[in-house]
């Protein structure tokens, strides 16, 4: 029987040295979905992922991953989950083939050679099979890491910032592979800082200071927050920026190239704040669609820093 939820955790908490890194975290991830996990550095994403894959024991809360209890059945979870760490965690002194063989052996897979050959073909790694992993470029290293993480055909992939520091072309290839895996029924929980990656997820959970701030389909997040955005274009934007900072109704200002995006929840107040610039000194004012980035920055600004 396939569980409707690949991840179902409640009230997860974890502290390190007296600092609560994750605080009452809930998450329900439907099977077969790509779930984005966003948040600034140090927000608790990695710790949460590590608790879900049985690597860390939560101080409080609990739940299930692939129908298994994350505390009592962590070993079974590890056998059915593919985990890719933030940094390349394979062995640089071993070749691509040796790294995969090593992983296949630790997963006690039968017919190791066949499994490794298949993975080499599937991830286009065969021409590099004899190359030392340490000599691969960032994109190829991540491809190898994904091949290693999915070698045992896991039902759930936990990917912790898998494309950090990888060039755009390699990132696109990587995401093509993630989508392919999701199409095969694999649930993917992926943490990322890149908004272009976040919008490819079916759902997004945003976490800051160890607490979840929102959990919704990517396209619905700006509307759920109720954030409106106006774009002001023109020359010499810094004085406008400084002036608008003091205006009621303007909750957030962000530069986007030669334009400012001002955002706020009160549409009328926001429009009134922007109106004086419309047509003045070469400025133009237009309504803009609130993007994920604006939504997340706004969410962050309202989050309480419980780490202080």
């Amino acid at each position: 029987m396939i569980d409707a939820l690949a991840i179902d955790v409640h009230g997860l908490s974890k502290s390190f040295g007296g600092t609560r890194v994750v605080d009452g975290f809930d998450m329900a991830v439907p099977s077969g979905k790509i779930y984005g996990f966003l948040g600034p550095n140090g927000s608790g994403k990695t710790t949460t992922i590590r608790m879900m894959c049985g690597l860390l024991k939560p101080d409080g809360g609990g739940g299930r991953a692939l129908g298994l209890d994350i505390i009592r059945e962590s070993r079974e979870i590890k056998a059915r989950v593919g985990y890719m760490t933030q940094r390349f965690s394979l062995y640089g002194d071993l070749t691509v083939r040796e790294n995969l063989t090593f992983m296949a052996r630790l997963h006690a897979l039968p017919e190791v050679r066949n499994v490794v050959d298949q993975a080499l073909d599937e991830y286009d790694l065969a021409p590099r099979a004899k190359q030392l992993a340490g000599n691969l470029s960032g994109g190829w290293k991540q491809r190898l890491a994904l091949a290693a993480a999915s070698l045992h055909q896991p039902g759930l992939l936990l990917l912790d910032e898998p494309t950090a520091g990888v060039d755009p072309k390699a990132r696109r290839d990587f995401w093509d592979r993630i989508r392919r895996l999701a199409k095969q029924g694999v649930t993917v929980l992926v943490s990322t800082h890149y908004m272009d990656e976040a919008v490819q997820c079916d759902n997004i959970a945003f976490i800051a200071y160890g607490r979840k701030l929102i959990d919704a389909p990517a396209g619905e997040i700006p509307a759920r927050i109720g954030l409106h955005t106006i774009r002001i274009e023109g020359p010499g934007l810094q004085p406008v920026y400084d002036a608008l900072e003091q205006v009621p109704g303007v909750e957030q200002i962000a530069r986007f190239g030669a334009a400012l995006h001002i955002s706020g929840r009160n549409a009328e107040a926001l429009a009134a704040a922007a109106r004086p610039y419309d047509g003045r000194d070469g400025f133009s004012v237009s309504e803009a669609k609130t993007g994920l980035e604006e939504a997340f920055i706004w969410l962050m600004s309202g989050a309480e820093d419980n780490f202080k």
Binding site: K78, F88, S89, L90, L106, A108
Partner: peptide
């Protein structure tokens, strides 16, 4: 250092081995 260096502890210990 084979584990500390490339920071592979979390990876190694996430494998299904006691």
């Amino acid at each position: 250092q084979l584990e500390h260096g490339p920071n592979t502890w979390s990876h190694t210990l996430a494998l299904p081995v006691p």
